[in-house]
Every structure is written in C-alpha cells, then in structure tokens.
C-alpha cells in the first residue's frame, strides 16, 4: 500500500515539483497546505501516514507546527518529517530538539528516503 502524504510548504513551486516527483516514485500525496492552520485541519480530515513539514512557513515556524502535530489529537498522531532547503547540519540542534521523526533536505527528497525514515520509526 502506498504511503499517504501531506506536504506542508509555503512555496507553490516546491509543492508542485515535490508532488510530481513523489507520486512518480510511488507515494500518494493526499493533500498540501501552506499555513499552520491549514495543515492542522488537513491532517485532521485526511489522516495522512506521514506529514512533510517545511521548517520555514513564511512567518510561521515549521518546528512549532511539528510540535502541534506531534501533540495531535488522541485519534491521530501522524509522524512528521521536517524538510528544508537548508542542509541538516545548519539546523541540527533545532532538528534534534523537535519531535519529528527525521529530516530531509529538500534537494534530497525522494520516496525512498521517506520510506526509510518512516520504516525505521515503525520498527523502533
């Protein structure tokens, strides 16, 4: 069964490009959002398997959104993967401190990488 994704990013170009690539690679992108509020609502109604969250959502912080998604509702607490155009080492301390299951650089985004991160958490 393909992984069902919600992508949260405030950059329309990126949403478009990421959706096209990930679907090609066998994922299902069930929805996209570009603000915290939108993201929380979508997550609630779509129940994705994984949510990709951009660290920078305009003036909002992806770290905050990741925290709120992780607190989640009783019924649904989807794993979050943080994404950014910054390389991981630039923000490592903040990423470590967040409840996200992992981080992917946007330039290295791929279905395989997502699958690996989620699979790893399923096991542990």
């Amino acid at each position: 069964m393909p992984i069902r994704l919600l992508i949260v990013d405030d950059n329309a170009h990126f949403l478009e490009a990421a959706r096209r690539l990930l679907e090609r690679q066998g994922m299902t992108v069930v929805g996209v959002a570009s603000t915290t509020l939108d993201a929380l609502r979508r997550a609630e109604e779509l129940r994705p398997d994984v949510t990709l969250v951009d660290i920078e959502l305009g003036h909002e912080s992806g770290f905050d959104l990741a925290r709120r998604l992780a607190e989640g509702t009783e019924a649904h607490r989807p794993p979050v993967i943080l994404i950014s155009a910054y390389p991981e080492q630039d923000l490592a301390d903040l990423i470590d401190a967040s409840p996200a299951v992992g981080f992917l650089a946007k330039s290295g985004l791929s279905g395989g990488a997502i699958f690996e991160l989620v699979g790893r958490t399923d096991k542990g």
């Binding site: 170009h13 990126f14 096209r20 690539l21 090609r24 690679q25 946007k106």
Partner: peptide, 21 residues
C-alpha cells in the same frame, strides 16, 4: 534562500521527476 535557493531546489526535483519519465 527564499528566492534563488528554493527555486533551484524545485528545479532539481522537476529534473528528477523528468528523469523518471
């Protein structure tokens, strides 16, 4: 970061998507 970098990253993803086709 917001302009050039994001745009280049998206182009990269598009290229990789094209590659798969």
């Amino acid at each position: 970061h917001d302009g050039t970098q994001q745009r280049l990253v998206s182009l990269g993803l598009e290229l990789r998507a094209a590659e798969t086709m």
